[in-house]
């Protein structure tokens, strides 16, 4: 269950940011979860709750949005959604595509007091 280590990394970043901004209460955190990243949002939520319970972060809400995979063809320059994990251009068939969205696992922002 790698959601545990990801929740831990997430909490490390949150604490660092809170210290930097002199914040003491965490209300919510917004995450973007790339479709390609092997994260189950419910598991991440669960791990986050387990790790934060009884700490000053208890009760904070995780707001997660799954970001679909998108690509751009380096041959024909078309942009498209990557369906069924098929990493080739649906217009010209070229495998030379750049994945422009849906790969990362990132914090977007957080609501603190």
């Amino acid at each position: 269950m790698h959601e545990m280590s990801i929740a831990q990394s997430l909490i490390d970043i949150i604490k660092e940011e809170m210290t930097r901004h002199d914040a003491t209460v965490l209300r919510s955190v917004r995450l973007n979860i790339g479709q390609l990243s092997a994260i189950v949002p419910q598991s991440l939520s669960f791990c986050f709750e387990v790790i934060t319970s009884g700490t000053e972060l208890e009760g904070a809400k995780l707001i997660m949005e799954v970001i679909p995979l998108e690509g751009m063809c380096r041959e024909c320059k078309q942009a498209f959604g990557i369906e069924d994990y098929a990493f080739e251009c649906p217009y010209c068939g070229s495998p030379d595509i750049e994945t422009t969205a849906g790969q990362d696992l990132s914090i977007v922002d957080m609501e603190v007091d």
Partner: peptide
């Protein structure tokens, strides 16, 4: 207060 972060969660690793 809203803090904008935009950080890769796996950045430390």
């Amino acid at each position: 207060m809203k803090i904008s972060v935009v950080k890769n969660i796996l950045e430390a690793n």
